[in-house]
């Protein structure tokens, strides 16, 4: 019985890192433009498929494939912002209009991926990342270690960016009041574009890591997106470290539940957690 606990802890940490990574990108967008961008989910799937396309189908060298994936995903995020979100926001559309539009983008992009690459489950293999190490009696693959490391780097990077740079101050200003930010001379259009580029690259990273770890299918985006949303909400919508806490809390609850029930109940448990938080602690753990 005891021998299974290290593995559950390890699985929770791995899943928590992934949710945190996806959640951080989602949070960046939400922090700046204040609507739930569901299209972000499609970006993660898109990232996974671009990696598959570049690495497996075109046999491009690994590093170039990774950079290519990030660039392509960031570009798609930028295009989505330019063509849909920016015009809607300029018109002062409500959050609900943006939510529905982003839902439309999500549905369309997911289906286009399925048309281009079929809806079959696909795996991406980099041989050196498949090896396993044993830590405190738990098995962890190199991919999963990479996932944890990337999440830490992204978290630190974003923290520095948001707290210590002029760019970060601008993001916070837009998040607080876009009109006032514009008046005091923040180039809001430019900043928002960059937010989408950064969030897109994070989504791409998460997508390709999922591809390396478990594999990809066109519907993976919704899964990741919803887990990220849950992490953001239970962590407390206002704070970035809240996202990370929320992500790990969600991952631990899920994995403990799976241990007692079975794998199929994971989503039911995750969303029950969301509903409970919305009901009893709508401001999340950090309560911002």
């Amino acid at each position: 019985m005891n021998s299974i606990i290290p593995q559950i802890v390890a699985n929770s940490i791995i899943a928590g890192s992934l949710y945190a990574l996806v959640g951080l990108g989602f949070f960046m967008i939400y922090r700046t433009v204040k609507f739930f961008d569901l299209g972000y989910g499609a970006l993660t799937a898109f990232g996974g498929y671009m990696m598959y396309w570049l690495l497996t189908l075109l046999s491009v060298p690994t590093y170039i494939a990774i950079i290519g994936t990030l660039l392509l995903t960031a570009m798609l995020a930028l295009i989505m912002n330019r063509l849909v979100y920016r015009p809607l926001r300029a018109r002062g559309s409500s959050n609900m209009v943006l939510l529905v539009a982003s839902l439309g983008l999500f549905t369309a992009i997911q289906a286009i991926i399925a048309i281009l690459f079929t809806s079959q489950f696909k795996t991406i293999t980099i041989r050196s990342l498949q090896e396993t190490v044993t830590l405190f009696g738990a098995f962890i693959t190199h991919t999963q270690l990479l996932m944890i490391a990337v999440t830490i780097i992204v978290f630190i990077g974003l923290s520095v960016l948001l707290r210590m740079t002029r760019f970060g101050a601008s993001i916070r200003a837009i998040g607080d009041d876009e009109e006032v930010a514009k008046i005091v001379g923040v180039n809001t259009k430019n900043i928002v574009s960059w937010v989408f580029i950064i969030a897109g690259a994070i989504a791409g990273t998460a997508g390709l890591l999922v591809g390396l770890d478990t594999g990809i299918e066109p519907t993976m985006g919704m899964q990741l997106l919803l887990k990220a949303v849950i992490a953001v909400i239970i962590g407390g919508v206002g704070r970035m470290y809240g996202v990370v806490i929320g992500a790990f809390l969600l991952a631990f609850i899920e994995n403990i539940a799976v241990w007692h029930l079975s794998g199929e109940w994971k989503d039911v448990v995750a969303f029950s957690v969301l509903i409970l938080f919305l009901l009893f602690k709508p401001k999340g753990i950090t309560g911002a």
Binding site: L103, G104, L105, F106, T107, I109, I112, I115, S119
Partner: peptide, 12 residues
């Protein structure tokens, strides 16, 4: 899948 593309784009 085309049905989904149409539905999605229609919303947008």
């Amino acid at each position: 899948q085309m049905r989904q593309v149409i539905y999605g784009l229609m919303l947008v």
